[in-house]
Design a protein around this nucleic acid. Structure first.
Lengths: 160, 160
DNA sequence: GATAGATTGATCCATTTGGATTTAATTTGC
DNA sequence: GCAAATTAAATCCAAATGGATCAATCTATC
């Protein structure tokens, strides 16, 4: 019995690890498409435009705080911010309270680039979630948020 | 007004891109924990043990088929299989129908390693989805599967 | 208020990554 | 039936990655 790709996926999604596999599959597929597209069209890696989102939403945010929103290694975020600064998309300002920290702000050039990325990301989001109706989408978001807030997501008790 | 991390996350999850951000956040957080743990304890990258899952589930699977289940660049899967083969966890056999393809099979050493990884992955899955009750978990899986089957997930109409 | 320990962000460097190319095999078109 | 196009997988190599280290600063304890 030879299975085609769709049937193989169904079978993978019937294993005991199906919950983890399904959600990872969705995000992995999307990242392959989105990250490659933005890299090609805007010349920046995912951690750079993710950081730009965070910096716009929270003016004066620090690098270590960005890591909490978009979990990546510390030096990855550090370099992403260097790239954004080198392109004039953000500016940094020494924190008054703590000389080690830098407050990061988006520039108007950064706003312009982000507006473009936001638009295409929003269209992409619509594409991805198209299979769900409005009610299902809200349920999905509510449940995802519940998972995201789980204590062990970032600090596992078993994988130490 | 200064926000702590939890509050920042809430605000990020109130933006128009919240659906995409929430699910990406969950998978990214998990990958940071899981991939690092398995790298440290089993000495192999995520694409290697993912492939091992696929190879066990579908004896004789080809490299290009694994890519459909765990979307990664072609050479990434190719190298993962080389690694698994070098460790004696899988063996390859030339396909009879098509000499370019190789059929991949798990070895008994591979079964042993996979059994360990499966156990810890299963425990990790329980940890991640602990915030959902049984009913919610099934709903979540059903909706995730719907998204996973969407045509545009892998072949975007807008990100070309 | 001096010193040890902790924390922030930058940098170092060996390893990994992934787009592009190559090799080998198959399929297509004429 | 043969050249051209296509496909699967391996390999090449410049660039990215991430664990480890470093420098600067802050905190705690005595």
């Amino acid at each position: 019995m030879v299975l085609n790709s769709k049937e193989k996926l169904d079978q993978i999604f019937s294993l005991e690890l199906k919950h983890l596999m399904a959600v990872s599959y969705v995000v992995l597929c999307n990242n392959m498409v989105t990250d490659r597209y933005i890299e090609k069209n805007f010349g920046m890696p995912v951690q750079a435009w993710s950081s730009l989102f965070a910096i716009e939403t929270f003016p004066g945010i620090k690098a270590k705080e960005i890591r909490k929103l978009f979990p990546r290694p510390q030096n990855t975020i550090s370099r992403a911010i260097s790239l954004l600064e080198a392109r004039g998309l953000v500016r940094q300002e020494a924190s008054r309270e703590d000389g080690r920290e830098k407050m990061i702000f988006i520039t108007s050039a950064g706003e312009d680039v982000l507006a473009e990325i936001r638009q295409v990301s929003f269209d992409r989001q619509s594409e991805i979630f198209a299979p769900l109706n409005k009610q299902e989408l809200e349920t999905y978001f509510r449940l995802t948020t519940k998972i995201a807030k789980g204590r062990a997501l970032t600090t596992s008790d078993i994988m130490i």
